[in-house]
Design a protein around this nucleic acid. Structure first.
Lengths: 213, 213, 213, 213
DNA sequence: CATGAATGAGCGTTCATTCAT
DNA sequence: GATGAATGAACGCTCATTCAT
């Protein structure tokens, strides 16, 4: 990569970092381009040198978040020989990731897709969706491995289980983020412990066939 | 309640009904006060006679949504003698409720609280949180009944399980809403079926003790 | 017309008057909505209460200018029994009109049409074109009357002659406006006299058949 | 001219050629300095090495357009022994010139001068006006030759007739450009034919004394 | 000299809110 | 009490211009 490209990447990164901070704090809609410019210490016009629009910034954050998440999940799976340990590590990496990336995670669970449907595929959305599918695929394969090792009940189709697991854990992470005070007051658990329990709860859901009435 | 108060309540209700329709259709951010005034057939200024701000309208809808949800959950519990049937009915009422109230439900899961913390407790937020706690209480009692009937593993504290169940189901509902197209393409399920499976998945999570490595 | 409608018309008129002044002075492109708001002594937002966009303001000015011009031309024709006197009056009314309406006249000669072709018929453009055609029709009929009275050579098709006459006079008016200083210096004529001569020049062009080489 | 000066002229010429292409295509207002830089294959900053501002570029193009027009007119006059043929050739060269130079011609008729008067004479305007005067002189001499040859009525002062002819033809060219569709629909003539007829119309205006009532 | 990078000032438009009637 | 009218404050975005290298 040339020096120029590196510098461009540096500025794009600074802007994205600033935007990410603000998005996490106030959400994408309430964060203005002026806010981002101020936080990143560029002029607003400079933002448009590095990104074509606010939407491109949002999508770039989403994409980088998704890519990082995928990497962490793969590392978690590959880094543990025991399936159960790997499962805990996967959940932990998702949870930790969300602590640093609330907005990106939000998107990972699909919150952006409807906006994206506005007309056609707005620049960058295709990549985001593709990475999301790749993560789904990685998790599905992981689940099937668990099934072969007898840790996971084989009766449910892997992909559907992944989607439900993913959505359920996302909901818990979201709750742990938005309602940490309430959770602390009610059940006396910090965010991390609460989410460990949640991960285990979801694991139990996958270890046995359906309930018989 | 005096005649005057009753009239005031009537107007507030009309406005909220209109706002609710629009919020469900376009979301709170994309719904303008002009939209609400037109839909409710009041002048925009009149909205400010009955509500101090747009945020108060949003919070009032949240509150009414929470109250309705609580009512439906109680009915579902009281309307079935079999715990398992009652469980399915509870999940179904939550799911159906969300189909008509995406925004309110979003809030019910806590998405509004951080914005609320901005300064102090903005008018109406306290009520919302209180109803949320009441629902948590109802569900915790229901879970304990399930525990006594042998349907639910007794080892986990009821309140924590409620919080996790609630958050997990919320995540699934959210995913089913935002990603229905992707879910249909990937696993070939419509929203309702997907969420039935999700409810059962969460139920299984609650019927057995923790996984032993 | 109700009181409310009258008031609305009054405000629209004030805004249009201000815009017309500024357009004449700086052109439509260099006149901003802020300029118009300041000149009309409204807030910028109020402009958008009475007009949907800047383009609607431009088009409204064009239309009113065209309508007024048509009225003046008709009055000039009907107010004189002698064709020659009527001809002079028509030219004079065009010339005078332009002194007060440089922008509208510019448009009358078609300068707006290409912008209008952008996509489809932008609101109000159809009316403008229609009035333009009506004026062409009025002038064509007037020319044919001149032909019957022997004042105008009958050999050329009336409509084409109208178009050429109109375009030629427009060019002279334009020049008289933009280059009045130069004209004064070079030939020692004020604007009005210069344009009288121009009108007569064009008249002569219409009184005899084509030149034979 | 030194080598350095020649190089400077070369770069100025390249920039002007690029700008001219774009101005003809999109107009001066909608052409950005970025567009010009891209088209000329210089960096935008380099444009400011050779021109002080966008306006100077516009004026320089105007000037070169005027110079070219003058050259073409002189050639047309000198290239035909018959006055009538020369007249047709002059009109044709003006018309053709405009097809390739709509913007420059617009300016040639004076559209720029009032903007120029804003403060003082902005750089380059004086040259433009001077060339305009030279063209006027050439045409006046040509008219006097026509008068001596009996083709043009001698009664009118040559300079004034030139100004009126020029302004009238400019108006027709302008109309033929902006309203070619309407003209085609109404009288079924293409641009070139319409303007031929216009030229002849103006010629007839110059061949006889004033109309007698 | 040539330029990549940066930006100030501005654009048309929107919308929650206010206030005289 | 109800409202029509008005608006301040933003918004996302553009572009002619500058300047360190």
């Amino acid at each position: 990569m040339s020096k120029k490209q590196a510098l461009t990447e540096f500025h794009r990164g600074s802007i994205l970092a600033a935007a990410e901070r603000l998005f996490a704090e106030k959400g994408t809609e309430k964060t203005t381009m002026d806010d981002i410019a101020r936080e990143a210490e560029y002029s607003k016009a400079t933002l448009y040198v590095y990104f074509q629009s606010k939407e491109e910034i949002i999508n770039a954050i989403l994409l980088s978040g998704m890519l990082l998440l995928k990497k962490k999940i793969c590392e978690a799976i590959e880094g543990h020989s025991s399936w159960l340990e790997a499962y805990d590590a996967v959940c932990l990496s998702i949870v930790r990731f969300y602590n640093e990336n609330p907005t990106a995670y939000d998107a990972a669970t699909g919150a952006l897709t409807p906006a994206a449907r506005g007309e056609e595929a707005p620049k960058g959305v295709a990549d985001i969706l593709r990475v999301g599918q790749e993560i789904d695929g990685v998790l599905a394969a992981f689940l099937e491995r668990g099934s072969q090792e007898g840790m996971v009940c084989a009766q449910m189709p892997a992909m559907e289980t992944v989607l439900l697991f993913w959505a359920g854990l996302a909901g818990m992470v979201r709750a742990a983020y938005y309602r940490s005070g309430y959770i602390q007051d009610t059940v006396g658990l910090d965010r991390e412990t609460f989410l460990q329990h949640g991960s285990r709860l979801l694991l139990r859901a996958m270890t046995q066939p359906d309930v018989q009435p």
